[in-house]
């Protein structure tokens, strides 16, 4: 059986981790490489590096962080933020990323998914989605960090993402993100029921049991969290122990 994956996300700005605090044994909590190594030690199954500034000027510094991490941490690395072209994808992969995460750029130019999948393989292409309940029982897709409603139906969009050859979907709920009341299980399952590619749950984890609940109540194959792990409130090891005690297979 495949293990369910627990994935910490590191938000990086100007080469430093944003919000990084309180890691025992990690002196510079803003140091992305040290944080990545600590997550690896805790048993993280993958890491996501997200460039929150994603400016052209800052690109080099960000990719240096990816490059250095890839030299020291030997689990899959996904890199996102500001990737808008095939050449951005190539640069990111060459820096040592195993997968690329695209979000707004995929909505604005869906061909980017198919082009990336053809050139680098489906396994490299993760499509991130920020979606919100539309108040009528459905969900719509937002871009630019969840700020702009594109009025695109979520279910139609995930089907298109799969048809274009994406390898995975990372589904973030705008409604639950930052609220810490748990993942949006209904939305997650609605997406899982409409695609066969793996779906990563994102946005809303607030307590230990939220992860196991997502795995028990939906077909999500992985769960991602940022601040919960950054602030040291929970460790990856604790989350896995809770899942394991509930009969969920984790590494």
């Amino acid at each position: 059986m495949l293990a369910k994956r627990i994935i910490p996300c590191l938000d990086v700005r100007h080469g430093k981790v944003v919000k990084g605090v309180n890691f025992e044994g990690v002196k510079d909590v803003g140091d992305p490489i040290a944080c990545a190594a600590e997550y690896n030690r805790q048993g993280a199954d993958e890491l996501v590096f997200y460039d929150i500034v994603a400016s052209h000027e800052g690109r080099g510094v960000f990719l240096d962080v990816v490059r250095e991490t890839a030299k020291q941490v030997f689990i899959p690395l996904t890199v996102g933020g500001g990737i808008a072209s095939v050449s951005d994808m190539r640069d990111t992969l060459r820096a040592g990323a195993d997968k690329i995460s695209i979000n707004s750029s995929a909505v604005k130019n869906p061909a980017l998914i198919s082009e990336g999948a053809e050139l680098f393989g489906s396994q490299c292409i993760v499509v991130g989605i920020d979606a919100k309940r539309d108040g009528k029982g459905g969900y719509t897709v937002f871009v630019n960090g969840g700020r702009i409603d594109m009025y695109i139906d979520l279910i139609e969009w995930v089907r298109e993402i799969q048809a274009r050859g994406a390898g995975e979907i990372c589904l973030n709920s705008i409604d639950t993100d930052g609220v810490r009341g748990g993942f949006d299980l209904e939305m997650l399952q609605a997406v899982c029921a409409n695609v066969t590619i793996p779906v990563i749950a994102s946005g809303g984890a607030g307590k230990l049991s939220d992860f196991a609940t997502a795995f028990q109540k939906t077909n999500a194959t992985a769960a991602l969290a940022a601040s919960l792990f950054h602030f040291g409130e929970l460790t990856v090891a604790q989350v896995k122990e809770d899942c394991r005690s509930k009969g969920i297979i984790v590494r």
């Binding site: 293990a3 994956r5 066969t196 992985a222």
Partner: peptide, 11 residues
């Protein structure tokens, strides 16, 4: 019955 590609950590 399983997702293809086989992607992730397997014992």
């Amino acid at each position: 019955r399983v997702i293809i590609p086989h992607m992730g950590w397997n014992e």
